[in-house]
Amino acid sequence: MEKFKRVSTYMIFVFPALAIYLAVIAFPIISSVGLSFTDYNIYKNLAIWTGLANYIKIFKDPVFWFSMRNNFFVIFVSVFGQIPLGFVLAYLIYRRLVKRSVFFQAMVFLPTVISTIIIGILWSKMFSPIGVVPRIIQVITNNPDYSMTIMTNKNLAMIPIGFVLLWMYTGTYLIIFLANLQNIDPDIIEAAQIDGATDGQIFRKIIVPQLYGVLVLTSILAISGSLRSFDLIFAMTGGGPAYYTNLLSIYMYNQSFIFHNYGVGSAVSTVMVILSIVLVILIRLARRKIDIMEA
């Protein structure tokens, strides 16, 4: 009886959250997977079973693969750019290796509190042929005809976006790392210094091992954030010129809301979910391997 009471109490407390989760997360994901096997007319609420046709269509589309390539670029910038940079900056501030560290910290964190759409439009204006960035280069190089052709280069168009991603999101990781660095007992570092450890040794042998868990967490955050990345790039380039800065999310959006191919859009979203799960599993496996090696 006592056990039943306890379980029913748990159920009462858990039910609202569980119901919301099922309604707004689980149900849309499951129905989206279902839709990906149909040709769905949302206006008439009519779904015709097409099997794997939508998946075959996207796998044959070079724009899909190009979008996936761009997504991997965003993941690369996030995992190997934002996280290490955020970590290093947090370490510099934590060890007070820079003066006016509070100001420095505020400046790095500032972009994360500005609306993503505003940042997208802002950088789009700055990189425009009549914007401030080409103008500065025109003055420096004394070439009045200079324009940023990198933005129209099929293979390089993502690089300016990568720069903006670094500028915008590094602050988030800086705050996460700084908060975790402050949890490290300063006595350990002091003891290491007394034992004659250099700054580099302290960093490699004390700081990094203590933050393995945070590194894995931030990597997962970076990967999942990168895969669903949409707003900044959509506001900045709209996926253009042509499809050179398309991401999977923009490709999915175009398929769903411009071409009205909701089945195809759902297929893309299913691929994104699978990709996200695979990458997170890989990171967890990597961490386990590191833990075994450390032990």
């Binding site: 789009s124 425009s128 009549i130 324009s147 940023m148 933005m151 129209t152 010129p241």
Partner: peptide, 15 residues
């Protein structure tokens, strides 16, 4: 000019 493709639609009248 190649810059045409980088200019926002709204930039035209002012320029």
């Amino acid at each position: 000019p190649p810059q045409s493709i980088q200019l926002e639609y709204g930039d035209g009248p002012n320029l």
